[in-house]
């Protein structure tokens, strides 16, 4: 339990608060110590824990894969190479099924990065909720959220990144005029309805990255929330509740990483489609 005999409300809040480093109203940069301070910092603040875990896990992923890629043999692969190739093949299969075999050097590595990185970040959800925050507290760090994907900054950061790619490919494949025409001629291809189409397409365009990022965030946030609530039970009641939920959560962890990847591929595929859809 966090702090000295906190109330339930305080306990939950503590678990849902990031370690924030930001610009105070007086112009100095420092860690926030209360929710009021976090609010005062406004936009110019950084979730240090989110950045730390996401970068660590990303480096772990890239490190392992780099190690394998360096020593990749076309002969009989070892166990680690086999595992990495399974991931690569899985991604390639999905890309081929949705995106087709159009030559694109980006979509494969993009999908692989998303799949493994998001999976690793989700996986942190299975670490007992109090373990790392308590350890951090003992080390003098007041807040330490462990699961980067329960921070909308992380999920929206990725989905907006994908959104920029969608815009880029729309311009690249369809050209500025083609892209603009697509925005006004669908779904009702009549000149009098162009203004209406445009509003619809704009809504569509904004909701795509929002739903893309918030879906992942929502799923993981809810899962984390339930782990926190289970942690409020007496110690003897925690195990029978937290084990089934953790087992079920394994499914969510994999599924959400997969869904995020598939949606990325689908959005990029749509950006490449020039014909009517």
């Amino acid at each position: 339990m966090a702090g000295d005999n906190p109330t339930t409300q305080e306990y939950i809040n503590h678990h849902l608060t990031n370690l924030v480093y930001g610009k105070r109203p007086d112009g100095t940069w420092d860690f926030a110590h209360s929710s009021q301070e976090i609010t005062d910092m406004g936009f110019w603040a950084i979730h240090v824990d989110t950045m730390f875990w996401s970068i660590s896990l990303g480096v772990l992923f890239l490190g392992i894969f780099l190690l394998v890629a360096r020593r990749a043999t076309s002969g009989v692969p070892g166990g680690l190479q086999n595992a990495c190739e399974m991931a690569v093949e899985f991604v390639e299969d999905n890309v081929t099924q949705v995106f087709g075999t159009r030559p694109n050097a980006l979509i494969g590595p993009l999908s692989l990065t998303i799949l493994i990185w998001v999976f690793l970040m989700n996986l942190m959800d299975l670490v007992p909720v109090d373990l790392i925050p308590r350890a951090a507290q003992l080390a003098g760090v007041s807040h330490f959220k462990v699961v980067p994907t329960t921070d909308p900054n992380a999920t929206l950061g990725m989905s907006i990144g994908v959104f920029f790619l969608v815009l880029y490919y729309n311009f690249k494949i369809k050209g500025a005029t083609g892209f603009a025409l697509g925005l006004v001629t669908h779904p009702i291809p009549h000149w009098s309805m162009y203004w209406f189409n445009f509003i619809l397409e704009m809504v569509d365009m904004v909701t795509k990255p929002m739903s893309h990022g918030l879906r992942l965030f929502g799923n993981l946030y809810a899962g984390e929330m339930i782990f926190i609530l289970i942690a409020l039970f007496p110690w003897y009641a925690q195990w029978p509740l937290s084990l089934p939920w953790a087992l079920f959560h394994i499914l969510i962890i994999c599924l959400q990483a997969f869904v995020f990847m598939i949606l990325t591929i689908v959005y990029l595929t749509q950006a490449h489609e020039t014909g009517e859809h």
């Binding site: 936009f43 603040a45 950084i46 950045m51 996401s54 990185w117 900054n153 950061g157």
Partner: peptide
Amino acid sequence: MNINATLFGQMITFALFVLFCM
């Protein structure tokens, strides 16, 4: 749910990771 500069940090991290992987 605080949207702040972490968003940019995550976007940059994401881009770098994808580039490295690529």
